[in-house]
Design a protein around this nucleic acid. Sequence first.
DNA 1: CTTGACCTTGACACAGATGTCAACGTCTAC
DNA 2: GTAGACGTTGACATCTGTGTCAAGGTCAAG
Lengths: 128, 128
Amino acid sequence: MRVGELADRTGVAPRMLRYYEEQGLIASTRQDNGYRAFEEADVERVRTVRSLIASGLPTRLVRVVLDIEALADDERSPSCSTAFAEMLYGELTTLNDKIACLTKSRDTVRHYLEHTEHSALVGAAEPV
Amino acid sequence: MRVGELADRTGVAPRMLRYYEEQGLIASTRQDNGYRAFEEADVERVRTVRSLIASGLPTRLVRVVLDIEALADDERSPSCSTAFAEMLYGELTTLNDKIACLTKSRDTVRHYLEHTEHSALVGAAEPV
DNA sequence: CTTGACCTTGACACAGATGTCAACGTCTAC
DNA sequence: GTAGACGTTGACATCTGTGTCAAGGTCAAG
């Protein structure tokens, strides 16, 4: 599919899709006419990219996470440099901190809403 | 305490503390000489602000979360406009999405690390 | 009184994510 | 073949969160 369709299906502007490609977060082949060609799987990938970026990860880290996700199934006992592993471990810690912080905020907001006369709204959000 | 001490104790540059104040995320009184005066509780508050911003929340939302947190203990059955409640509900959904996305990425990274020869690193990170 | 550490405000600069626009090529439909 | 929708690249603008610096006030120590 071309960039416009991918944009329609993900809700992400073509401009940003090109930017993500430039940053190495998504890939495309080229048609004879120079148009980008994306695959079905890119729809999911773009959604993941969006979420990760919205969650405060810089593109450079999004790339790492996606790369790891990609080889997770094949290479089950991978070897990597200690430096890389330590970097990942640092990021793991950062991710845990972010999750903890967001969870606390989420609970704060939810508890607040539950105590307003609009508490019915909260019904849908399942506790974790 | 003055801005320098708060900076030392939070690891956040004075420049950013003034910025956060400008954005309404923290408050200070002024001494006679014009110096900002912060309270003990601001140390925690600044840490919270940092975490929330690092988690991708824009300052405008950080303000809302902190405001809610502040009145959570006093006003237990607050009344607010439907529009505000709906906005909060929307943010609640966003927070849940971010948490889910970060959790998935965290698990991806952790599982990867566990399968490398550096798996010993992961020991500290408790599963959630 | 001077020095040095700390504070003030204000400005300018920068990076990352994003919007917008121009100039131009491609393709479909009339 | 021309119009219109869509694609391409490249440039510039904007917003946020930051860093840095200048010009100046405050204050404690020598």
